[in-house]
Write a protein that binds this DNA or RNA. Structure first.
Length: 268
DNA sequence: ATGGTGGGACACCCA
């Protein structure tokens, strides 16, 4: 079973590279973030033509929005409105694999703006509140209730470890790598006993970054990237993961997203 | 210290 996550930064604008990616890498389950459209505007025909049977969409006009599609049959479980602000940032889908129920949580965690002070920046305060609610949700076991395995993935908008960014020192006060965020994200991970696949010794890719700013003159030469996109699994599933990859080359495709696909393969 | 480039919707928000 191959699963991929990709912040596509407008699915309508980039449907052609989504199709190329699917044809070349054949994910069984594909999770997109920042689709930036409502459900009715989602390019459903193109996605179905790629062989996806299940398509779950949590859309919103202009901003955010996540969608999960699969070649295997699935059903939408929930679209949870964390912090109850009406944002489309989460979708949970259930799949039956090998007689077990797998729940896939597709997340787009708030970016949090530029100012890393929650008293001065409501967006940053919202990001911290969102993480805190995720932690409680994981502690309560809500992520897996009624299922056998859980995967939490998506654009979590935080690079939690020192080598998840091009310069730990220079980014300590930059939103996405501040201590309050990295500690907050690691607390969510600990609360759900999730395994961060990129950090498993046997799976660790050479390059960890999943995002490079559009503002760099030459993203590849400067390589000022960050690992913002993650695939976490429940412990039982992590032992069945035999391949993990970050498709860095996608950042160099024509009219790219600023994020690249992250792919995990399981022997289940 | 600053400004750099991309989205969407509609004059400016967000990343």
């Amino acid at each position: 079973m191959r699963i991929a996550t990709w912040n596509i930064n407008s699915v309508r604008l980039r449907i052609d590279i989504v199709a190329d990616f699917v044809q070349r890498y054949q994910p069984d389950i594909l999770c997109l973030q920042e689709i930036k459209c409502i459900e009715d505007a989602f390019p459903l025909k193109r996605i179905r033509a790629l062989g996806f049977d299940y398509v779950g969409i949590h859309g919103q006009k202009g901003y955010h929005g996540v969608a999960t599609m699969a070649r295997i049959s699935g059903e939408t479980h929930t679209r949870h409105d964390f912090c109850e602000v009406g944002d489309a940032r989460h979708l949970a889908s259930d799949f039956n694999i090998g007689g077990k129920r797998l729940r896939v949580h597709n997340f787009y965690v708030p970016a949090g703006g530029d100012e890393p002070n929650p008293d001065l920046n409501a967006k940053f305060a919202h990001k911290l509140a969102y993480l805190d609610e995720m932690r409680g949700w994981a502690v309560d076991g809500q992520h897996i209730a009624g299922a056998d395995h859980a995967i939490v993935l998506g654009d979590l908008n935080i690079a939690p470890h020192a080598d998840d960014v091009w310069s730990h020192k220079q980014l300590l006060n930059v939103v996405s790598h501040t201590p309050v965020e990295t500690e907050g994200l690691l607390a969510v991970q600990a609360a759900g006993n999730f395994i961060d696949l990129a950090r498993e010794d046997a799976l660790r890719p050479d390059s960890l970054y999943t995002w490079w700013s559009y503002r760099a003159k030459d993203w590849e030469a400067s390589n000022r990237g960050r690992r913002l996109d993650h695939i976490w699994t429940s412990a039982d599933l992590a032992t069945r993961c035999n391949r993990f990859s970050i498709l860095s080359e996608a950042r160099g495709w024509d009219r790219p997203s600023d994020h690249v696909p992250v792919i995990a393969e399981f022997d289940i």
